[in-house]
Amino acid sequence: MSSLDASAAIALACATDHANHCITCSDEGTPMVVLQLDEARGLALCEDLAGEHHTVEVALVDAEPGHTLLVHAGTALLNLNGDRA
């Protein structure tokens, strides 16, 4: 197997989510879907790709239930359903 094929095989074998990434890394962002909004407190209940639920700050984005947000360290930085989705 050439190194090119080997790399492609690794790429195929590693088709997982971001769970291995470091939460501390400033460039880690995780897509999460909004399940419920608590507008009074500026929080949302969100579900990540693994099905786990999280409380997320949504003060920096306009979010609606069903939207996918890019979340870092408990804060949504971007609504992926916006113009650039």
Partner: peptide, 17 residues
């Protein structure tokens, strides 16, 4: 620049390509 890229490069063998 960022560690997230470094992680992906090694994880997927991008530099081998």
């Amino acid at each position: 620049v960022c560690g997230g890229h470094t992680h992906s490069i090694y994880r997927y063998g991008v530099d081998d390509l």
